[in-house]
Design a protein around this nucleic acid. Structure first.
Lengths: 200, 200
DNA sequence: GTCTATATTTCGATAGAC
DNA sequence: GTCTATCGAAATATAGAC
């Protein structure tokens, strides 16, 4: 079989470098507004060269989608395995928040380009994988969990997103560890069982 | 002076109708992906007719920006007027959440098209008004307020956003009043003074 | 206020040489 | 793996009639 590497260790493949550049541009310029010419320019080669590494522009976006998807698998597996025990959620969330922080750009990419990702889903790019967003949707729609709890769970994700968003902006001075700790405390107040009134 | 109306009461002007259509399309298709042809089609007239009501595509987006901006003025004025008394914030937030809920699409438009709005700001579309986002930024950057509190304030906005996002999706069955109440409770847990540990 | 027709630009994608 | 050159599609915007 063909062996791809023969690359100095610790050095990224051209393909991965393209994805890094695309991630940055797509996130703060927007997917539609970012042209392949712009990506190629930053990479130091021509637009056509991109087509050696990716079949299309959509293909680049899809590759970034997979990055997040693989990341999310582990996190969500913890959530869904076994029974839903709300008492455990804060602890589980602590880990999830840390992981989200490490790859916050990836999350922001999705928030900021929601429409483009939906188009991707509709088009021929059918994949047999269960979408990350779809899994969250299922958890939030689970009738066995009281509604206030589920809403607060959604809020928790939103809160972390907002914190991450600001971390690269207003709170950029603050150490990410401190920020992460504050966020964990906030999420605890949101979804710890004591905070959620049980329905009548 | 010229008088515009002569329109049956309760009926919206063509300009406002265009904005309504644009708001919907920009929000769930995306600003860049939405073509003027698509807007015109829904309006029942041709693309060129749009240019009678708006100078450019950007001009439509700007008009929608102003809608949110006017909305935000009142809310933020409460926040900034007088001293910053954290004890009052939860009460103030209750009102703000209600207002945000009424116009949630407008907020989602901004979240989902952040890059496009930034472009608008850079371009020649200089306006003398203080941007809504800029005002929030200033509040969150105010050193007189302890950091954990400010981060939690950011979280509160994120939480409400997430709740609103889901309200048109997973929680679409739930009455908006119920949802609003749950959100208010969640925000209280996030930013009530008791919840925030005072710094050492 | 709305139309048809068209100018202009930009972009994604392909072909084929090296 | 990267290049130059180019095609074809689609979009914004304008001109001028009605």
């Amino acid at each position: 079989m063909p062996r791809p590497p023969a690359r100095p260790p610790g050095e990224k493949s051209t393909r991965e470098q393209i994805l890094d550049v695309a991630l940055e541009l797509f996130t703060d310029v927007g997917y539609e507004k970012t042209s392949l010419r712009e990506i190629a320019e930053r990479m130091g080669f021509s637009k056509a060269a991109l087509y050696y590494h990716f079949a299309s522009k959509d293909d680049i976006l899809m590759a970034l989608h997979m990055r997040l998807h693989e990341l999310g698998q582990e996190g969500f597996d913890q959530f869904e395995s076994g029974e839903v025990d709300p008492a455990e959620w804060p602890a589980v969330f602590d880990k999830i928040i840390s992981r989200m922080f490490e790859h916050r750009t990836l999350f922001m990419l999705h928030v900021r380009n929601h429409a483009s990702f939906e188009k991707l889903h509709e088009k021929g790019h059918e994949q047999q994988h269960v979408d990350l967003e779809e899994r969250l949707r299922q958890i939030l729609a689970d009738d066995r969990v009281p509604l206030p709890f589920r809403v607060r769970l959604a809020c928790a994700f939103g809160a972390v997103m907002a914190g991450m968003l600001m971390s690269s902006d207003i709170f950029s001075d603050v150490a990410t560890d401190d920020l992460s700790t504050i966020l964990q405390g906030a999420v605890r107040d949101l979804i710890s069982p004591a905070a959620v009134p049980s329905p009548a």
